[in-house]
Amino acid sequence: MCDLFVLFNGYSKLCNDKEMLANCSCSLILGDHNIIVDTMTAWDSDKIITALAGYNILPDMIHYVISTHGHSDHIGNNNLFLKAKHIVGYSVSYKEKYFLHPFESGEKYYINENVEVLPTPGHTLSDVTVLVKTKEGTVAVAGDLFENSEDIENPTIWMSAGSENPALQRKNRAAVAEIAHWIVPGHGPKFKVTEEIRNSLSKQI
Results as ranks from 00 to 15, higher is better:
residue 95 K to R: 11
residue 2 C to M: 13
residue 6 V to T: 15
residue 137 G to N: 05
residue 190 K to Y: 08
residue 42 A to G: 02
residue 22 A to P: 05
residue 141 V to Y: 10
residue 169 Q to H: 11
residue 170 R to I: 01
residue 166 P to D: 04
residue 13 K to G: 06
residue 147 E to I: 15
residue 127 D to F: 06
residue 192 K to M: 13
residue 112 N to V: 07
residue 49 I to E: 00
residue 15 C to R: 15
residue 146 F to R: 10
residue 33 H to N: 15
residue 92 V to R: 07
residue 28 L to T: 06
residue 166 P to T: 05
residue 2 C to V: 07
residue 29 I to W: 05
residue 49 I to G: 04
residue 115 V to W: 02
residue 192 K to W: 11
residue 106 G to M: 02
residue 20 M to C: 14
residue 100 L to P: 02
residue 54 G to V: 10
residue 71 H to V: 12
residue 178 E to K: 14
residue 89 G to T: 02
residue 154 N to I: 11
residue 195 E to K: 15
residue 100 L to S: 10
residue 160 S to N: 15
residue 96 E to N: 02
residue 4 L to G: 06
residue 93 S to Y: 12
residue 123 H to D: 06
residue 79 N to Q: 11
residue 10 G to K: 07
residue 91 S to C: 10
residue 154 N to R: 05
residue 27 S to T: 13
residue 192 K to G: 08
residue 187 H to V: 01
residue 125 L to N: 06
residue 65 V to Q: 10
residue 129 T to I: 04
residue 187 H to M: 03
residue 106 G to T: 07
residue 14 L to R: 15
residue 25 S to A: 07
residue 29 I to A: 06
residue 178 E to I: 02
residue 22 A to L: 10
residue 150 E to W: 07
residue 64 Y to L: 03
residue 145 L to P: 03
residue 155 P to C: 08
residue 44 D to I: 00
residue 14 L to W: 13
residue 156 T to H: 13
residue 129 T to K: 05
residue 188 G to A: 00
residue 172 N to I: 02
residue 19 E to S: 14
residue 204 Q to C: 04
residue 189 P to N: 01
residue 93 S to G: 01
residue 178 E to M: 12
residue 36 I to D: 10
residue 158 W to P: 00
residue 21 L to V: 11
residue 188 G to D: 01
residue 138 T to G: 04
residue 84 A to M: 10
residue 81 F to C: 08
residue 163 S to G: 06
residue 72 S to P: 11
residue 9 N to L: 05
residue 88 V to C: 15
residue 134 T to R: 07
residue 123 H to L: 08
residue 95 K to G: 04
residue 115 V to Q: 02
residue 100 L to T: 09
residue 18 K to N: 12
residue 175 A to K: 15
residue 96 E to T: 01
residue 106 G to I: 03
residue 98 Y to T: 05
residue 194 T to A: 00
residue 114 N to L: 00
residue 70 G to T: 06
residue 163 S to W: 05
residue 23 N to E: 11
residue 197 I to A: 08
residue 129 T to H: 13
residue 175 A to Q: 14
residue 67 S to K: 03
residue 117 V to Y: 01
residue 185 P to I: 01
residue 26 C to S: 12
residue 19 E to M: 14
residue 41 T to R: 11
residue 49 I to L: 09
residue 9 N to E: 12
residue 202 S to W: 05
residue 138 T to C: 10
residue 145 L to V: 13
residue 75 I to A: 00
residue 126 S to I: 09
residue 141 V to C: 04
residue 164 E to A: 08
residue 27 S to H: 01
residue 7 L to T: 07
residue 181 H to K: 13
residue 131 L to I: 04
residue 93 S to M: 03
residue 50 T to A: 12
residue 123 H to V: 09
residue 82 L to A: 09
residue 89 G to F: 01
residue 195 E to G: 08
residue 74 H to V: 09
residue 189 P to Q: 06
residue 72 S to T: 03
residue 178 E to G: 00
residue 22 A to H: 14
residue 73 D to E: 06
residue 177 A to F: 06
residue 89 G to R: 01
residue 56 N to L: 07
residue 94 Y to E: 11
residue 15 C to K: 15
residue 136 E to D: 13
residue 153 E to M: 09
residue 56 N to W: 08
residue 173 R to N: 03
residue 20 M to L: 15
residue 141 V to Q: 08
